[in-house]
């Protein structure tokens, strides 16, 4: 016997709607059926977030795919940027797909001239559009053991569109993973990054630094040092990696390192995926985010 809607707790899921594929996320949220125990206790509603006053009515947030530069500029213009940073700082649940993942990363390379603003929150450096031009966009099935928690872990259809590549993890504290058997609990080994000399930078908020021809954008006024990050920050949990035998053509950042094969991560209440579950009819990742990440954090 279920409670009447009025006895359920209303949880509003906001979808940032500045630019990009926000209506796809809105549709998925609108059609999501919650599983027990939440099916009896929670009523979900979906809301487009275009202004700070929209954000203040939400308890859960999704940052969609789109062009991350456009979304960042649009947020700045309507005064959403600082509220979004405050959202992340205060530990409220948020999921970013593709452009949303870039915005939630603490560092990004491959941005436009002059750098781009990031919201930050996840201790990773991503290479924006790291697989190369659109002709290198691809689809592949992903193994995601965490989906066992929301039904089954059949392969998830991963749709990668001018997707970001994780260049490196910015601290070494990893969740000994229930999720990925291929991942060992260390990132120290000089893995991957072509740019090691990140020493200083200027600018206000959107700090950026040009090093060896690459532009790095930072989310925070202070670049994180690995030691103090590791001490205070929640662990990074890898949710999905590209298969080792996935044969992709020549790319600007071949995903050959352990880090750069990562395509889904969780840190605290922040989840990021470099692919687009909202473009498929498979709602398992949304279910996982809502039922295993977001609702436990706010109820």
């Amino acid at each position: 016997m279920s409670n009447s809607p009025s006895q359920r707790k209303l949880v509003t899921v906001g979808v940032l709607a500045i630019q990009g594929a926000f209506s796809e996320h809105l549709n998925q949220v609108s059609h999501l059926s919650l599983q027990p125990p939440y099916s009896h206790s929670v009523e979900l509603s979906a809301k487009l977030v275009k202004r700070p006053e929209d954000l203040s009515q939400c308890q859960v947030l999704i940052l969609p795919g789109g062009e991350s530069t456009v979304i960042a500029m649009g947020c700045r213009r309507v005064g959403l940027f600082e509220p979004l940073r405050e959202w992340v700082r205060s530990g409220k649940p948020v999921w970013g797909t593709c452009a949303g993942m870039i915005l939630l990363s603490n560092q990004a390379t491959g941005g436009k001239k002059g750098g781009q603003e990031l919201i930050g929150g996840v201790d990773i450096r991503v290479n924006r559009n790291g697989y190369g031009a659109q002709i290198f966009s691809f689809e592949t099935n992903l193994s995601m053991p965490c989906l066992e928690q929301v039904g089954d872990h059949r392969p998830f259809p991963g749709v990668f569109i001018r997707a970001p590549v994780v260049e490196r993890l910015l601290h070494s504290k990893l969740e000994p993973s229930s999720s990925s058997s291929t991942f060992s609990a260390t990132t120290e080994s000089g893995t991957s990054t072509p740019i090691e000399k990140v020493t200083s930078y200027g600018g206000d908020g959107a700090a950026e630094k040009e090093e060896e021809g690459l532009i790095i954008s930072y989310a925070d006024p202070q670049p994180p040092t690995e030691s103090d990050q590791s001490a205070k920050r929640p662990p990074l949990e890898v949710l999905a990696t590209l298969q080792d035998d996935l044969d992709l053509p020549q790319q600007s950042t071949p995903p050959t390192t352990t880090d750069s094969r990562i395509v889904a991560l969780k840190q605290g209440n922040i989840m990021v995926t470099s692919f687009h579950p909202e473009l498929t009819s498979d709602r398992r990742i949304l279910s996982y985010f809502i039922e295993k990440v977001a609702l436990p954090a706010i109820l």
Binding site: G20, A21, F22, S23, G66, E67, F138, V159, I161
Partner: peptide
């Protein structure tokens, strides 16, 4: 296309979806 998972109709129409509202 050289490889079956590159340049699918899904990633082609998907990029257009990423441009929406722009």
């Amino acid at each position: 296309a050289e490889s079956s998972n590159l340049g699918t109709f899904g990633v082609k129409s998907g990029l257009a979806q990423m441009l929406k509202g722009g």
